[in-house]
């Protein structure tokens, strides 16, 4: 079945195979660089997320792709859609802000400066969220916390692209698909003749 390809593989020689491997590695590395670069620009640990639940329907459905930013010194406002991750919970949640309370930062004895910077104020903001499709607010999801704080928030939803993210949900639901896709891509990269 693969004899043709294997023969071609042998003909290419050791250096060529190495070159292909390097090419493949650089593709992966540049992908990672773009992802991390976006993360730095948007100040969000994951600037693109896929919607996993139906709690924001009919705005967002499972598999929709969201683009996030998280400017460090900008306060969140009601009506903003946030993505947050409570420590201990394994998946991030996409919900809308229902209440904000801009609590003044506590003056610790260690900090010398008198002025409170806007990022300090933002870090102390207390937030309550709710899913558009849920009847009650999220306080039960906060695992004992009274309010959501800035450190729990991954980002604010800025842009929206429907359905594209369903690929990743499909790959999680059917792991075989993931391996088939990865294997296929890998083989393709190695066997390319140019």
């Amino acid at each position: 079945m693969f004899t043709e390809e294997l023969k071609a593989f042998k003909r290419l020689g050791f250096r060529h195979v190495l070159l292909q491997v390097l090419n493949f590695a650089s593709v992966i590395a540049s992908g990672l660089m773009i992802w991390k670069g976006l993360g730095i620009i948007t100040n969000s640990e994951s600037p693109i997320v896929v919607v996993l639940s139906g709690s924001m329907e009919p705005a967002f459905y499972r598999g929709d792709l969201l683009f996030l930013t998280n400017p460090p010194n900008e306060l969140y406002k009601t009506g903003d859609i946030t993505v947050y991750k409570i420590p201990g919970a394994d998946i991030p949640i996409v919900h809308r802000v229902l209440e904000t309370h801009d609590v003044k930062p506590k003056r610790s004895s260690k900090s010398k400066s008198k002025e409170t910077t806007s990022s300090e104020v933002a870090a102390n903001q207390r937030i309550l969220t709710k899913g558009d499709n849920n009847y009650v607010d999220d306080i039960e999801l906060y695992q004992g916390l009274e309010w959501l704080e800035r450190k729990h928030i991954v980002g604010k939803v800025r842009g929206f692209l429907p359905y594209i993210g369903y690929v990743t949900i499909a790959m999680n639901d059917f792991p075989q698909l993931k391996y088939a896709l990865l294997g296929g891509l890998g083989l393709l990269a190695l066997l390319q003749r140019e």
């Binding site: 406002k77 009601t78 229902l98 209440e99 904000t100 309370h101 801009d102 003044k104």
Partner: peptide, 9 residues
């Protein structure tokens, strides 16, 4: 009165 801004939907 403490200067805390609140927004509630």
């Amino acid at each position: 009165s403490q200067g805390v801004k609140n927004e509630v939907v």
